[in-house]
């Protein structure tokens, strides 16, 4: 199991167990974490699973994928250097403890 902590825009924290190989988006949905919509199911066709990766984790969670930046341009909330589509971050053992912040809106 890989621990992932989601911090909502109001500061509320939720820590859930994810599975190696699942995306951060799928982990949020499977654990009923509000604030991630994931409308296209991880096909990089929308920007409704936008998250901000905690500074301490941004290197380990990797760079944006091809095309991810173009989708993020259409995100409903402010784009920051740490912005990612959570469907493109795949969980590995090395990411246990990952912290991501959720934006105010996804739509």
């Amino acid at each position: 199991m890989v621990k992932v902590t989601f911090i909502h825009s109001d500061g509320r924290e939720e820590t859930v167990d994810g599975r190696v190989g699942d995306s951060v988006m799928a982990t949020a949905l499977a654990n009923d974490v509000e604030g991630i919509v994931g409308e296209c199911g991880g096909s990089m066709m929308c920007a409704t699973c936008h998250c901000y990766v905690d500074d301490g984790w941004s290197e380990r969670s990797g760079d944006r994928m091809d095309g991810e930046e173009d989708m993020l341009d259409c995100a409903a909330s402010e784009l920051r250097p740490t912005s990612r589509l959570s469907c493109q971050i795949k969980l590995s053992e090395g990411l246990s403890g990952l912290v991501v912040y959720l934006p105010e809106a996804q739509l």
Partner: peptide
């Protein structure tokens, strides 16, 4: 095809 940038420009 495999061109997210143009696709998103078109949507906008």
């Amino acid at each position: 095809v495999n061109d997210a940038k143009a696709h998103m420009q078109a949507r906008k």
